[in-house]
Amino acid sequence: MSSRMSLEEKFHATGGKRSYVQRLFGRIAGIYDLMNRLMSFGLDRYWRKRAARYLALATGETGLDLGAGTADLSIAVIRQSGPNTHMIGMDITPEMLEEGRKKIARLGLQDQIELRTGDAEHIDLPDNSVDGCCSAFTVRNLTDIKQGFREMFRVVRPGGRVVCLEISHPPGRIFGGLFYFYFYKLAPLFGTIIGKAFEEYNYLPNSLTTFPDAPTLQKIMEEAGWSDVRFYRLSGGIVALHVGTKA
């Protein structure tokens, strides 16, 4: 598919954004973890650990990880939470989940983490059925962000939290300029050299172009029903961690 096509044209050519994203992540599932480590200079583990701390399930509670992919965030939550905690990880891409299952089995966490195919905009769970919900680098890929946060609100029990970790728009001209040069110019090059995946790693920066900044995402979450929504910029604002509560 030509890299000169706009993202909207690519979505249309493949049957919509959901279908495009599913195929794209299916193609890079085997190199996804390696690319995350390399492109973030290892910071992605620190970011997930911070997100997991904010979710912090209590003894016996169950959390939901949307866009769970290879299960890194689910694993981080289990490690940061009390005993007998469980995570349900959902993702639309079977190939990513398969990588995640291998990892969970290696770590002996298969009794605490269950991975299943699922859509963040139409969560196949009853109302008020989980104690908290989290996502890492998922919301940017949704077709309708507000619908995603509404669904999260529906399935979380009153008093439960949502934690959203996402790439953001760093404030400040100098640092922001350096970030955009790296993210838009060098990241696709990384993908091409290491993973022979220019299309996939060209999508990642371009998906940020229309993605809301941290204050705007805060408002979207509030409009979806979440209370006491705050955000924390990490690593100079490269990523933002949004946290909200279901009153």
Rank of each mutant, 00 (worst) to 15 (best):
L24M: 12
Y232K: 15
L189K: 10
Y232H: 15
D131A: 12
E200I: 06
Q218W: 03
T216K: 14
G176K: 01
E8M: 07
S235A: 14
G89M: 04
G225H: 06
P158A: 10
S6R: 07
M90A: 13
G69S: 10
G225K: 03
E99A: 04
M90W: 11
I88F: 02
Q147E: 08
N202E: 12
V162C: 13
L125T: 07
Y20G: 09
W47R: 05
A197P: 01
C164I: 14
V139Q: 01
Y232V: 14
Q112T: 07
P205L: 07
A56G: 11
R161V: 11
G148P: 11
I78Q: 01
R79S: 14
L186S: 10
L241K: 01
R4C: 12
G236F: 09
E166M: 10
I88Y: 01
Y182T: 02
V130N: 06
T210M: 15
R4T: 15
M1Q: 10
A136M: 08
W226G: 05
D44H: 15
P94E: 12
C164K: 01
P212K: 05
R4I: 15
G67K: 00
Q22V: 05
V77I: 14
I238F: 10
C134L: 06
T14D: 10
E98M: 11
L24R: 00
S129H: 07
Y232I: 15
V130F: 09
G69F: 04
D111Q: 13
Y182K: 04
S227C: 12
G244Y: 03
M152F: 04
T245G: 05
P215M: 12
M39K: 02
S235C: 10
S6G: 06
G132L: 09
I28A: 00
I113T: 00
S81M: 08
E200N: 09
A197L: 02
M1A: 12
H12E: 14
A68E: 00
H86E: 07
L34D: 09
Y54R: 12
A240G: 09
P126Q: 11
I220V: 13
Y20A: 10
I104M: 08
F231M: 06
T192Q: 15
Y54F: 13
P126I: 07
S129K: 04
P188E: 02
S2T: 13
S135V: 04
F153R: 00
F11Y: 15
N202I: 04
M221N: 03
R230H: 11
Y184V: 02
W47H: 04
N128I: 06
L241M: 10
L55H: 07
L55K: 05
N36V: 03
F183S: 01
T209L: 09
R18A: 13
I174E: 10
D124S: 14
I78G: 02
V139I: 13
N128Q: 14
R53K: 12
C133S: 12
T62G: 01
F25W: 08
Y46Q: 05
D33W: 05
F179V: 05
I220F: 06
G244L: 08
P215K: 10
F11G: 05
F137Y: 15
S74W: 02
A51C: 03
D131T: 09
F41W: 15
E223W: 08
R161A: 13
K246S: 07
Q112H: 14
D228E: 12
Y232P: 00
